[in-house]
Amino acid sequence: MRTLAGAVIAEVIGLDGGEADYRRLFARGEEIVAMVSLRTRRLSPRQVARARAVLAPLGDIAAAAYAAGDERSVMGRMRAAGLSERRRAARRRRSSSPAPRRSRPWCPG
């Protein structure tokens, strides 16, 4: 399963690789997941730095695939469809009154 999951990630970001590459991709994902739990709402500056270090090489691979424009990759198809590669940091709007909290937003009904 790890190899298959890594292969899916590789396909999405445009990495041509083999089984060892797929396992490394999956391991990178595990590193990120290990930092958080279902209750994690914010990351510490140290966690953010670590996550960026883990994910930066994946972003570089995806950017190269986008630039190449090879429509055999998801990134190449995104470029062909006219989607931008511009990366934006998510900005959270802050208001003076916080939004009401839902006790279990994942629960249906």
Rank of each mutant, 00 (worst) to 15 (best):
residue 80 A to I: 09
residue 64 A to G: 08
residue 29 G to E: 03
residue 86 R to A: 13
residue 10 A to T: 08
residue 26 F to D: 14
residue 21 D to W: 03
residue 104 R to N: 14
residue 78 M to V: 03
residue 109 G to Q: 14
residue 56 A to E: 12
residue 95 S to I: 01
residue 64 A to R: 13
residue 53 A to W: 00
residue 15 L to V: 09
residue 50 R to D: 08
residue 63 A to N: 02
residue 35 M to R: 04
residue 13 I to S: 01
residue 9 I to K: 00
residue 83 L to D: 01
residue 75 M to N: 09
residue 33 V to A: 08
residue 66 Y to R: 02
residue 39 R to H: 12
residue 73 S to Q: 03
residue 106 W to E: 01
residue 64 A to Q: 14
residue 60 D to V: 05
residue 48 V to F: 01
residue 35 M to S: 05
residue 12 V to I: 13
residue 9 I to H: 10
residue 61 I to F: 01
residue 56 A to T: 09
residue 103 S to T: 15
residue 56 A to S: 00
residue 15 L to E: 00
residue 12 V to S: 08
residue 43 L to R: 05
residue 71 E to L: 08
residue 81 A to R: 11
residue 93 R to V: 11
residue 26 F to K: 02
residue 100 P to C: 05
residue 67 A to S: 00
residue 88 R to G: 11
residue 77 R to G: 02
residue 89 A to H: 15
residue 108 P to Q: 09
residue 87 R to G: 14
residue 22 Y to E: 02
residue 59 G to S: 04
residue 82 G to L: 07
residue 54 V to R: 06
residue 27 A to T: 01
residue 64 A to N: 12
residue 87 R to M: 13
residue 8 V to A: 07
residue 87 R to E: 15
residue 7 A to Q: 15
residue 52 R to G: 14
residue 43 L to I: 07
residue 84 S to P: 03
